[in-house]
């Protein structure tokens, strides 16, 4: 288990007159083993934070610490074994011409890990798929199964921090339930630290302990999960967002 500390994270994309500051100055911290949510409307910079943390964007300033190490100082191999990411769209995030076995064995080969067959079988069973699925290609899997493979790919290097970028927004309710259960169960068994981006507050309420409400790149408020009910937020935008979600949710 590792904590995450983000301090004064700033990123500007584009150059010259077209430069846009996506994140002006973001700071937050996540306890080891916590599930921390990031919510906000599209374009508010939720996914950008995850992309900065995983160094998919490199031009940011500020500091991101995983445990007591800065993410920039970590060697690539160590970073990948600490932090893994699951992307939003399971249809786009798997290579269409690589079998599940290829997808899962590549990280093992890069990291020169032993007992490859055993590790692959364990990863695929952990996400609730039969071992025979190793020989399938993405087009032979449903959306939920693909997302399970993407989770297995993230788990196979045994990271301690998982970044989840809207892991269920492309899935149906029934399949979403399966994936959320799986993520909750994995966290209970293995003690991951989750950072989860979502725009569905019901999902955030189910998964997260605390969450940050973002607007135009700023974190306007950090709330704990029990402040959702009855809307105990203070910032006007956070209140508006929670009100809209409660209204939407109210019929059930």
């Amino acid at each position: 288990m590792k904590s995450v500390n983000v301090k004064n994270l700033t990123i500007t994309l584009g150059e010259g007159s077209k430069a846009v500051t996506i994140l002006p100055n973001v700071s937050f911290s996540v306890e080891p083993g916590e599930c921390f949510g990031l919510v906000g409307e599209s374009g508010s910079g939720k996914s950008t934070i995850l992309r900065c943390m995983s160094l998919l964007f490199k031009q940011w300033e500020g500091e991101i610490r995983l445990g007591n190490q800065s993410v920039r100082d970590m060697p690539l191999i160590e970073r990948c074994r600490t932090l893994q990411m699951v992307f939003q769209d399971p249809y786009g995030s798997l290579h269409p011409r690589q079998s599940v076995r290829t997808v899962l064995s590549e990280p093992l080969r890069i990291h020169k890990l032993d007992r490859q067959k055993e590790r692959m079988e364990r990863a695929i069973t952990e996400v609730g798929l039969p071992v025979e699925f190793l020989d399938r290609y993405p087009h032979q899997l449903s959306g939920g199964q693909r997302q399970r493979v993407a989770i297995a790919r993230a788990l196979i290097l045994e990271p301690s921090i998982l970044l989840l970028d809207e892991p269920t927004s492309a899935l149906d309710v029934s399949v979403q339930a399966e994936i959320l259960n799986l993520l909750a169960d994995l966290r209970a068994r293995k003690g991951f630290t989750y950072l989860m981006v979502s725009h569905d507050l019901a999902v955030v309420d189910y998964m997260c302990d605390r969450f940050a409400v973002m607007q135009a790149g700023d974190i306007v408020e950090i709330l704990s999960r029990d402040m959702l009910e009855g809307n105990k937020a203070t910032h006007p935008y956070a209140r508006q967002l929670i009100d809209a979600s409660l209204e939407y949710d109210s019929a059930i």
Binding site: A177, L228, I252
Partner: peptide
């Protein structure tokens, strides 16, 4: 809708997480 008879509809309703809905594992179809 909450009085749905068909098990599929009931399953869909139960699979939906909701705000303030607790942390018990979600029902799976």
């Amino acid at each position: 809708l909450s009085n749905a008879q068909h098990p599929y509809t009931q399953g869909l309703l139960a699979a939906q997480p909701r705000i303030g809905g607790g942390r018990t594992p979600l029902k799976v179809l």
